[in-house]
Simulated assay, not measured.
Amino acid sequence: MKEERFKKAEFAAWIGIVGNIVLAIVKGFIGYIANSKALIADAVHSASDVVGSLAVLIGLRAARKPPDEDHPYGHGKAESIAAIVVSIIMFVVGLEVASASFETMREPLAAPGVIAIYAAIISMVVKEAMFRYKYKLGKRLNSQALIANAWDHRSDVYSSLAALVGIGGAVLGGKLGIPLLLYLDPLAGIVVSVLVLKMAYNILKESVHNTLDHVIHEEDAKELVDAVEKVDGVISVDQLFAREHGHYVIVDVKVGVNPNISVEKGHAIGKEVKHTLMNQFEHVQDVMVHINPYSGEFGNDNQPEVFH
C-alpha cells in the first residue's frame, strides 16, 4: 500500500510539471504577442510552479526511503521540507511579479490583444482541475507536499482571474479610448503578486509547524488511545504522543499493567500494543511502548493524558 501511495503521489507531481510547462509557454507566448504584462506575470507564476512540482517530486522520493542508521524514524519529513521549498519559491516569484508590474506602470501603456483574455480563461480552468485533483489526492494520501502544491495551483487560479480582470479592463479602455483603464493590466500583475505572497505565507507557516515535531491533536489521537485500551492486559493508557513525520506518525505510549506480572508478560503486552497500532492504522510507522506498574496515579479516573 505504501508503494502504491508513492506511485500515485509521483504521478500527480509529474502532471504538475508537464501541465505547468505547457501553461507557462502558452501564456508567455500569448502574453508577449498580445502585449499583456498581466498574462506574462501569470506565465512566470506557472513557470515557478514547475520548480515547485520538481521540489515535491524530490521530496516524495526522499520520503520513500526506508529508515537507516542516521534516520531511524524514516525520511517522512522530506515532504514537509519540499512544501517549505515550494513556499519560498512562491515568495520569490511574488516579489518578482510585483517589481515587474510596478516598473511597467512607469512606461507608456498600450491595450493588450483580446487573445490574452482566452488564454487567462483556459489557464483558470486547467489550474482549477489540477488543484482539485492534487488536493483530494494529497488528503487521501496524507501528503503535505502534494497539498502545498495543490494550493500553489489554486493561487494560479486567483492570479489568472486577476489577470483576466486586468486584461479585460485594459482591452475595454483601448476600445473606448479611456487611457486610465490601460493601467488595469499591470495593476492586475500587482494583485497577482499579493495573492501569491499570501498563499506562500500560509503554506510556509503550516509546513514549519509540522516540521517541528508537531504532535497530533487530542481528538485525532483518540482512536489510537481507544485501540490501546482494548489490548488484553492494558489497564490504563497513561500517556500517548503521536509525532507527525510527514505522511506517517511515530507513537510513544505509556501503559499501566498489573504490577505483579512477570517482566516477560509485561514485554508481551507491550509487543501486542505495538502490533495493534501498526496493524490497525496505516499511518502509524512505529510505536515505542513504555510499561508502567498500574497504581491509579496517572490521569483522572484512569483516563489517558494525551499531550499535544
Rank of each mutant, 00 (worst) to 15 (best):
M1K: 10
A9C: 14
E10L: 11
F11K: 13
W14F: 13
V18W: 05
I25L: 15
V26H: 01
V26P: 07
F29E: 08
F29N: 08
K37R: 13
S46H: 12
G52A: 10
A55H: 04
L60Y: 09
R61F: 00
P66F: 05
D70Y: 15
G76F: 04
G76L: 07
I81Q: 02
A83M: 06
V86M: 09
V93F: 07
A100R: 10
S101K: 12
E103P: 02
M105L: 15
A110R: 14
A116H: 04
S123H: 02
V126H: 07
V126K: 08
N142E: 07
N142A: 10
S143D: 13
S143H: 08
L146P: 14
I147N: 01
I147C: 01
W151F: 07
W151E: 05
D152N: 14
R154F: 15
Y158W: 12
Y158S: 05
S159W: 01
L161C: 01
I167P: 01
G168K: 03
V171C: 11
G173N: 12
G173M: 14
G173W: 14
G177R: 09
L182A: 02
P186E: 07
G189S: 05
V192D: 01
V194P: 01
L197C: 08
D213K: 01
E218R: 12
L224W: 13
V225T: 03
V225W: 03
A227N: 09
V228K: 15
V228I: 14
E229N: 01
K230S: 15
D232E: 15
I235Y: 00
F241D: 14
F241I: 08
E244I: 11
I250A: 15
V253R: 03
I261H: 13
S262G: 04
S262T: 10
V263K: 09
E264S: 15
I269L: 10
G270A: 05
L277V: 05
L277A: 07
Q280F: 03
F281C: 11
V289N: 10
I291Y: 06
F298H: 12
F307G: 15
